[in-house]
Amino acid sequence: METGLALLIGVLVAAAVYLMLARNVMSFLFGLLLISNAANLAIFTSGRLTEGAPPLVPEGADAPVGIVANALPQALVLTAIVIGFGLFAFSLMLVFRAYTGLGTLHGDEMRVAEPKEDKA
């Protein structure tokens, strides 16, 4: 299970890096989406995987008995997913504004805020 997830993370990161290296801002964004999910999976996996053991505290006990799933990474991932989603929505909107305002999705052509280049 861990091996499978590790491979999946690897594939996700590779695809994300490929997308992010593109000049197009849109594909950069998709790359970002993939890589943030890869990061989430990495957190999840590094919290150790246990199958079919919800971290429930039996009645009368203070802590769950036996080996149960680790709830902390799940909480972390949940937070990260929410934040990541919000950020993605924001950047999608930003890119849309950039596209309507600047008329391009090409990273190299976004030079409105840069000083003019010498044509020497």
Partner: peptide, 11 residues
């Protein structure tokens, strides 16, 4: 200008 700068900053 701001949008242009922001795209780079955000990314």
């Amino acid at each position: 200008q701001e949008i242009d700068g922001a795209v780079k900053y955000v990314m």
